[in-house]
């Protein structure tokens, strides 16, 4: 009997305690930079699209919500013709970012992407592309890769010798 009264009193005393609820839209929560939210496609430091349409994000995606099609410009630089993420399926696991060999696909600390129509949760490349390098400044896949693209001839990548002269046979 006493315990019941005591309980009532203890509960009543909570009237004077601080509330733990955070008034979210007015008081935004702090999200760490590595928070796994809305996915973006970043650009390399030169401003070109980082995505080389290698399909690794698509295969890594456990819910298969990434679809893209690779294409190539006339100079051999590969990029996605379209790149689609169905955010109504995305589980924000971040595997795509782990899989991405060019730091193109990145998860950002933003989760405020509710829509009244589910269809609007389908993001195309135009919706995903940002203008900067995101979390990884400085990296440019094309400076490391061995293929030739516009503005980078054979042998001009990092740690490459100039192209072999096939006409000389000196050992």
């Amino acid at each position: 009997m006493f315990s019941i009264v005591r309980t009532l009193w203890d509960v009543f005393l909570h009237s004077f305690q601080r509330r733990v609820t955070r008034q979210y839209p007015e008081q935004p929560a702090y999200l760490p930079p590595r928070w796994r939210g809305r996915i973006v496609l970043s650009r390399d430091p030169d401003g070109g699209e980082r995505c080389v349409a290698c399909y690794l994000c698509a295969i890594a995606c456990p819910v298969d919500c990434i679809a893209l099609q690779a294409t190539e410009d006339s100079n051999g630089r590969r990029y996605p013709e379209f790149f689609r993420i169905n955010f109504s399926r995305c589980i924000f696991c971040g595997y795509c970012e782990d899989a991405c060999p060019t730091y193109a696909i990145q998860l950002t600390p933003d989760f405020e992407m509710s829509e009244y129509k589910r269809q609007n949760l389908v993001y195309e490349k135009e919706d995903l592309l940002i203008s900067g390098t995101g979390k990884y400044p400085g990296y440019n896949f094309w400076r490391v890769a061995g293929v030739q693209i516009d503005g980078k001839d054979k042998g001009q990548s990092e740690r490459e010798e100039p192209p072999t002269d096939l006409r000389q046979l000196l050992p």
């Binding site: 399909y55 698509a58 298969d64 919500c65 990434i66 679809a67 689609r84 169905n86 399926r89 389908v122």
Partner: peptide, 8 residues
């Protein structure tokens, strides 16, 4: 891959 996105 892309089963839930290719026709989305």
């Amino acid at each position: 891959s892309g089963r839930t996105a290719m026709l989305a």
